[in-house]
Amino acid sequence: METITVEEQPLSIIYQDAQDTFPNECCGFLYGNENEGRRITEAVPVINSKEGDQRRRFEISPFDYMKAEQYALANNLTLLGVYHSHPNHPAIASEHDLAKALPYFSYIIVSVMEGEIADIKSWRLQDDNTAFDEEKVNIHIKKV
């Protein structure tokens, strides 16, 4: 199983966004590097642009994606994936997630049950695009 390391600060941003947006789905971009394995150093929330019921769906506007790649280039980061929440559902990648998934990206999913963070998992599309592989989420807490 591949591992994705998430630093403490982006993790807290993801959790806060997931709770603040409940009962709707939140979404955002994951930036970082792959110097020693995949590492998320920054998470940036973005508006869920899905029209209709946002409790079960999310969408990121093309304009926001365009800005996200420009931001990564300007800040010497790599856009490594997106996160979103599953309100009152498990952190398991769904058929809807699979239908729109892109190769290479990490898809971090946070399960929020009745407003509380319940679970976090990360998924990466298999090479043949037919299913996800789970990635082990390693949470990195800085020692002071």
């Binding site: 789905e25 979404c27 899905k50 079960r56 769906r57 999310f58 969408e59 990121i60 093309p62 994606y65 365009m66 790649e69 420009q70 997106v82 979103h84 599953h86 309100p87 559902h89 990648a93 769904s94 809807h96 997630d97 239908a99 729109k100 998934a101 892109l102 898809y107």
Partner: peptide
């Protein structure tokens, strides 16, 4: 000019 290629991003539970 800067040209961007933008894939669709969506999903849900």
């Amino acid at each position: 000019d800067v040209i961007s290629i933008v894939p669709a991003i969506a999903g849900g539970c």
